[in-house]
Amino acid sequence: MSLRLGEPAHPSTSPAPAAPGTVIGDPAFAIEVLGVHKSFGALHVLDGVDLRVRRGEVTVILGPSGSGKSTLLRAINHLEKVDKGLILVDSEPIGYRRKGTRLHELSEREILHQRAKVGFVFQNFNLFPHLTVLENVIEAPRSAQRRRRDDVVAQARSLLAAVGVADKADAYPRQLSGGQQQRVAIARALALNPAVILFDEPTSALDPELVGEVLEAIRALAGQGRTLIIVTHEIGFAREVADSVVFMDAGVIVEHGTPSQVLDHPRHERTRAFLSKVL
């Protein structure tokens, strides 16, 4: 389904990227971020961000802290509501329903339903500490997708095996190492069969020796042709798995290209300065 917007879609939607006559909702893209602005008080965190992510592509977002990377990721999942602009996941505007040229705000329930299409892996894992590993993984498929318990448990066990924590199914999250917890969180996100998975600095809260096992699990997903967006500071990992690299600074996308374009031949001074500091 592709839709054509003649007029600005929403009173507050920026017409900039979806200029009259521009096709948006192109099925080739899993995610389209169109002219997105977001501020917290006086702080402009996202200052007109445009980003299109092709289906099955692995995109790594780099940038100094405070550059808006995490906010962008959270906006894609509608954990943050944007002030201006539009985000489409699977050609569907997130948080809204389009009727003609009007966008109707969705109810909480409908937004929750939309979110099941987008998996999210948090920096601090955010596993539910009072539920076992298995219960953490089956909770959303059971309650949000109302799938049968037997199916969900079988799928959860195979996902836990895939990320290498099959033997921890009945443990509580606090009994696991950080790396194991993050791998469980990845299994939990996968259990909803999301079209897209977002990773918000998945290794930043880990001890250095545990980073490898989590990156290994993400690398395996990248090999399966899933659409992934990863905010990370692991430049080596970005070079290895990314199809495209985005460099953000001060709420805008400074550079977007292949890993070798952005990491080896950056065109902007800001990108160069950042890379020289982290490499």
Partner: peptide
């Protein structure tokens, strides 16, 4: 707050977020 955020990100219904995730904790 991360617990509610995780529950929301997983699309768990509101009532269930409260009774299954928040209240037991």
């Amino acid at each position: 707050a991360g617990q509610l955020e995780a529950a929301a990100a997983l699309g768990i219904p509101r009532r269930r977020q409260f009774f299954k995730i928040v209240l037991p904790q």
